[in-house]
Design a protein around this nucleic acid. Structure first.
Lengths: 199, 199
DNA sequence: GTCTATACACCGATAGAC
DNA sequence: GTCTATCGGTGTATAGAC
């Protein structure tokens, strides 16, 4: 059973995400957040001990929903290059659909590095675990194997998506981003070989 | 001839970089900056119209000094893979030598995306031009050519360095970062072929 | 030109009425 | 529980003495 306080906390977290997405973390004051949520200022401090407590929840709960390793659902009948390309294209589409949200995630991640380094570390190690599993699955389904440790390839993939996100947010150049995604898929695929063969 | 005002502006910019590096952009208030520079608050507004004007200068002047495409000086007797690996390793060494500075640059870039998008765009297009020239030079010196448009490869390289920076700042895992750099160099090199040959 | 003192807005947080 | 009113602190910016 959800208590009223928990509903309020959830509403405030959602409002905070909207404010950060629209105007940035520096504009996400408690006043701006309660205005977005349609509450009074005192209600904020009834639901949360402090603004820091809400930011903690933003980092752990909202960043955790981020899917850094996007691989397509249907894996059949594709090469590893096609699979990586489809996955990265899916992420790019997601970014283009809701750029403000991805910008907010990047901003929260950067804030976390400074303010809550242990939360940031835990979050990225979670990303790496998910990406590792996805890349292993992708290799398995395409009869290939990775010639570098899979966590390394996963970390490379995550670095790539972070970097592609930032650069696209800077210039919003769709054509260039698609070209980069295609090149990245090709380059990453070269880190695999047909299973059973030597490197 | 440097006027006293220009000296003051330069001193304030340098102080601002130190504050952002040490405590983040959100802590870089005018008061914190003048304290770091050893001036009074009024001197700030004698040199700058407003805090925004200093931030503009931070973005254009300080971000412009960033070298995103680091390639080693001596190019002889290396393969393209070795060249890329040496370049990326050089960047990683630079990051590890002064992580606070790179974190400040990333923070400023992200701020610029929101507050001064046209400055951010100009800055990244400059990065791309430099990286493009470097990658063309690298291919030329190793008797190879790029199988993707060079600006695409350059953008991929910039995305990679941005992503590698963020992920290393998160967990400071040197071994993993070196492993990623090696894998990235290998993967990128696969986007080249010996000159004169078909793809 | 450079300082101290201060104006005024907004911040996070809380007291106390209802 | 939820509100209005307000506290103490800090932010940017400026006035005015020197």
């Amino acid at each position: 059973m959800r208590t009223s306080v928990e509903n309020r906390r959830a509403a405030l977290v959602e409002a905070a995400v909207r404010v950060v997405s629209a105007r940035g973390l520096s504009a996400a004051s408690t006043r701006a957040i309660v205005a977005e949520a349609g509450m009074s200022l005192a209600s904020f401090h009834y639901a949360f001990e402090s603004r820091d407590e809400l930011l903690d929840l933003l980092i752990t709960e909202v960043l955790a929903k981020e899917e850094k390793a996007v691989l397509p659902d249907r894996l059949e009948g594709r090469t590893i290059t096609e699979l990586l390309h489809a996955g990265l294209t899916g992420y790019l589409d997601h970014l283009r659909t809701d750029p403000a949200h991805e910008q907010a995630m990047l901003e929260l991640a950067q804030f976390a590095v400074r303010a809550r380094p242990e939360l940031a570390r835990e979050q990225y190690s979670q990303y790496t675990r998910i990406a590792t599993a996805a890349l292993e699955l992708a290799a398995h389904h395409t009869g290939t194997r990775w010639t570098v440790p899979v966590p390394t390839a996963a970390r490379l993939l995550i670095s790539l998506t972070d970097g592609i996100t930032l650069t696209w947010l800077v210039d919003r150049d769709d054509d260039l981003a698609e070209s980069v995604v295609a090149a990245a898929a090709t380059a990453l695929a070269e880190l695999t070989v047909a299973d059973g063969r030597p490197d």
